[in-house]
């Protein structure tokens, strides 16, 4: 059965659009639900602050929404884009773009719900710190969006890059692998960054004077939590921009696809783990500010160790791309 390339590209674009929006809706919905649940809890504790809490909840949810808005944009582009070339590569690029954006929006959506929810609870605990809490929440959840933004960048490159001159076999697998690498790796980093941001909102509400130290250690912890998604971005850039020698065999294609899957899956655990370490450190800096230095040091050591498996995964991916 010979498939018309025009049909193949359309199929890939529609499937990619569906994947982008379907998976992209998961994270933000969970995150916003968490924010709303904590806001209800907060209002039940201090009903007289319901106005402030409600406002804060809406701001937090609006930021958490952004990951799924990126997914909506990519999905709409995929539905209405006219492909310049109709071949297997264009189809793989569209599918890869959908996978990257859909998976990539999950972590950021869930993660940015944590600071929203914790800052609502914090307002009921410490109404005097309302503006500090809102500011801290906005900083934390903005940083949580970084992995989703990386995923959008990769999706846009896949959609608009010109792959005419690349050999279709095995480059199709590289483009799919690029989508998986970025999308999967973004899950852990988004979620982990959210854990750190949530703990910082909780900490500021318990000890508003510690806000400077808490925000600093939150940002450091979040930055380290982003590393696995940066590895994912790196591998997907290599997969997209390197020229692979033409080969009709199956094994070179599978090596490229496996390289993407390896760094992608490998980034999930370390991203979440780094976030857990940062959560523990940020929470206790607020309670014990005079030992912020000790906590920062232990956090960085703990995160470095929990990073190691992401580095192994990246090494295996690089071997799959450059050696075998």
């Amino acid at each position: 059965m010979a498939i018309d390339p025009n049909i193949l590209v359309k199929v890939a674009a529609f499937a990619g659009g569906g994947i982008a929006m379907g998976l992209g809706a998961v994270g933000a919905a969970i995150g916003e639900g968490y924010t709303a649940s904590q806001a209800n809890l907060a209002i039940s504790r201090s009903p007289e602050k319901s106005g402030d809490i409600f406002k804060n909840m809406l701001v937090g949810q609006a930021v958490a929404e952004s990951a799924s808005i990126f997914a909506l944009v990519i999905a709409i582009l995929l539905l209405f884009l006219d492909a310049s070339t109709a071949n297997l590569l264009q189809a793989a690029a569209f599918l890869g773009a959908g996978i990257s954006m859909g998976l990539g929006a999950i972590g950021s959506g869930v993660g940015s719900g944590f600071p929203g929810g914790q800052s609502c609870l914090g307002i009921s605990r410490q109404p005097a710190a309302t503006s500090k809490l809102t500011t801290n929440m906005l900083i934390g959840s903005a940083v949580c969006q970084t992995p989703a933004i990386f995923a959008m960048v990769v999706a846009l490159i896949l959609m608009f890059m010109d792959f005419k001159n690349a050999p279709a076999l095995p480059t199709w697998a590289a483009l799919l692998g690029a989508g998986f690498s970025m999308g999967l790796a973004a899950i852990g980093s988004g979620y982990g960054g959210g854990m750190a941001a949530g703990a910082s909102c909780e900490g500021v509400s318990r000890n508003p004077d510690s806000v400077g130290n808490v925000t600093t250690i939150m940002l450091v912890g979040q930055a380290v939590s982003q590393t696995p998604s940066i590895f994912g971005l790196l591998i997907s850039f290599i997969l997209m921009f390197r020229v692979f020698p033409e080969s009709t065999a199956l094994s070179p294609a599978m090596a490229l696809l496996a390289a993407g899957l390896c760094t992608g899956f490998g980034g999930i655990g370390p991203g979440i783990g780094n976030g857990m370490v940062a959560q523990g450190a940020v929470r206790w800096v607020a309670r014990n500010v005079e030992h912020a230095g000790d906590l920062m040091r232990t956090m960085l050591v703990g995160q470095a160790v929990s990073q190691s498996t992401a580095i192994y995964a990246m090494v295996i991916s690089l071997v799959l791309i450059f050696v075998v």
């Binding site: 999967l184 852990g188 982990g192 696995p228 094994s251 599978m254 090596a255 696809l257 496996a258 390289a259 993407g260 899957l261 390896c262 760094t263 992608g264 899956f265 490998g266 980034g267 999930i268 655990g269 370390p270 991203g271 979440i272 783990g273 780094n274 976030g275 857990m276 370490v277 959560q279 523990g280 450190a281 929470r283 206790w284 906590l295 232990t298 956090m299 050591v301 703990g302 995160q303 160790v305 929990s306 990073q307 190691s308 498996t309 992401a310 192994y312 995964a313 295996i316 991916s317 799959l320 075998v324």
Partner: peptide, 27 residues
């Protein structure tokens, strides 16, 4: 090749989360 990628990729999830728990409790 596919098996190698999946082995390392999926195998990295557990240690990452587990080491994160240890680090969080140590802090």
């Amino acid at each position: 090749f596919l098996g190698a990628g999946l082995a390392m990729g999926l195998g990295a999830i557990g240690p990452g989360v587990g080491e994160g728990m240890v680090g969080a409790k140590a802090c």
